[in-house]
Amino acid sequence: MTNLEFTPLVFAISTAAGCLGALTGLGGGVVVTPALTLLLGVDIRYAIGASLVSVIATSSGAAAAFVREGYSNIRIGMFLEVATTLGALLGAFLATRTPTSILAVIFGVVLLHSAWMSSRGRPRDVAGQTPDALAERFKLNGAYPAEHGLEHYRVVRVKTGLGLMFGAGTLSGLLGIGSGALKVIAMDQAMRIPFKVSTTTSNFMIGVTAAASAGIYLSRGYIEPALTMPVMLGVLAGSLIGARQLVSARVGVLRWIFAGVVAVMAVEMIVSGLRGSG
């Protein structure tokens, strides 16, 4: 394939990935990397480099809108970013020492887990939870615009959330993904932050998490400009389309899109990884 054929193809795939990434709070990287490696045979290190950079675009592009609309909680974001950025540094160092076949298998397993967790849903009832001292001290409790005015929420299990966020950061640096799935799980399921606040705050945090490993990726040569160009532009375009849909989309539908796509990609990644090492 020549550049003139390859670039538009990569752009199209990336646009679709970016759209889905924004809709689910996942970040486009999770779809872009399997697509590039499985469909086009791109080396996984180039794919995760391009993906990591483009999730910064997804995150920042969509976050700009959500922050203004009042869905994201910037204090929760900054508080948890301490954990995600430290994790991201560790992950990026690990990435340079891990064989690519193992990276592919880990990638697949992470995806499968995300799909399974997100399809389970969560208990609706949050009353009777003990207030969290850390949440009070760091002013994490907040409110967001719902159908009938502001909806207030209380954050619980902050320490569990921090631990999960460190893990999410490590996976982000290791796999070049935004790790939005794990971030949403940490906030939505562990800390009991409302789903829309979780997805948009996750989106907001992804850029900073990714930037923490981007410097290491750059110096290791994972960021190949000619490949990253259509990936980044495509994911950005897709994320803007996806972000526009989020406000109107129903949460239940989101979960199913999220789970279905991710599961298919996951199985393919695991198979390709096992084949590569066999």
Binding site: M1, T2, N3, L4, E5, F6, T7, L40, G41, V42, D43, R45, Y46, T100, L218, S219, R220, G221, Y222, I223, E224, P225, A226, L227, M229, P230, L233
Partner: peptide, 29 residues
């Protein structure tokens, strides 16, 4: 985008393949 248009106008028919990893040149790192 500007860099991309510039790149494609110079290397439109060059083969694109990223199957094998060779760390990008020092000047891009």
């Amino acid at each position: 985008l500007a860099g991309g248009v510039c790149f494609l106008s110079q290397h439109a028919n060059a083969p694109a393949g990223y199957h094998d990893f060779r760390a990008a040149l020092d000047s891009y790192r």
